[in-house]
């Protein structure tokens, strides 16, 4: 009798330990000891590697619950076709809406390429400057976030963003934008767009780090940012950026 009870108790205790251990492990895996002051995030984009497949756009919408309609994007891919008569045609590639890319006669094309775009997570973000209620702000690790509980939906930030990176989420009626997948990067994962990019056109990392793919990207390439004259100091940098890209 005693023995049976002992075994019973041990089993229960064991089970309890197991559950607790599980919880502990899970908690450790999810929260970790994330210290935002130890990071400062940026992204490098190699235009010469982008094949314009649109996987990043798809993954971003799936990961972040971005409305499916083609008017709301946290990231998108532009296709530039510069023709020999110097005419420039730009399209936003949406693999779900229009799989066919506009066709050009090969002999008319001077050069052509794809450019992925997203929130530049500016060092001097104009959107943060203009928000009347302080509902958008820069975190210690350099990401611009929106407080959807306090955003009043005045859309001043959308007007102030030079890159068209913000949209008004039709479900919440608040401003929304790329967060570098903040919920992923704080767990040590890559942003969804970087994760799925088949050609590593996007390189995510810590701008402070000296030994990382991002550091290598900056060492090996001539890099540039979008609209440098506006002094927003983007943390999204491009290599092989063509002058026609705006």
């Amino acid at each position: 009798m005693k023995r049976r009870k002992f075994i019973e108790r041990s089993l229960v205790m064991l089970a309890q330990f197991g559950v607790m251990g599980g919880i502990f492990r899970r908690a450790k895996a999810e929260l970790k000891d994330y210290d935002p002051s130890k990071h400062y995030y940026g992204m490098g984009i190699q235009i010469n590697k982008c094949i314009g497949c649109g996987k990043c756009v798809e993954a971003c919408k799936a990961e972040n619950g971005v409305p499916k309609e083609p008017f709301f994007f946290r990231t998108w891919v532009e296709r530039y076709v510069i023709k020999k008569d110097n005419g420039v045609t730009v399209q936003s590639i949406d693999p779900r809406i229009e799989r066919s890319y506009e066709a050009f006669a090969e002999k008319d094309i001077l050069r052509s390429f794809f450019v992925p775009k997203l929130c530049n997570q500016c060092e001097n973000p104009p959107c943060v400057q203009v928000c009347p209620v302080g509902a958008t702000f820069k975190t210690a690790d350099g990401v611009i976030l929106v407080d959807a509980d306090r955003c009043i939906g005045c859309r001043y930030c959308i007007q102030a963003c030079p890159y068209g990176a913000r949209y008004l989420n039709p479900e919440t009626e608040t401003a929304d934008k790329c967060t570098f997948c903040y919920h992923r990067i704080t767990k040590g994962l890559l942003p969804a767009c970087v994760e799925v990019c088949p050609t590593q056109a996007r390189i995510f990392g810590d701008v402070k780090s000296n030994a990382s793919p991002l550091a290598r990207f900056k060492r090996m390439n001539k890099i540039h940012v979008l609209k440098p004259s506006l002094n927003t100091e983007p943390k999204v940098t491009y290599s092989d950026l063509d002058g026609e890209v705006r």
Binding site: Y34, E63, A148, Y182, H183, T186, K187, L189, A192, V196
Partner: peptide, 9 residues
């Protein structure tokens, strides 16, 4: 709120 959002990938 941002960090507690669920991961899909």
């Amino acid at each position: 709120r941002e960090t507690s959002r669920s991961v899909r990938y």
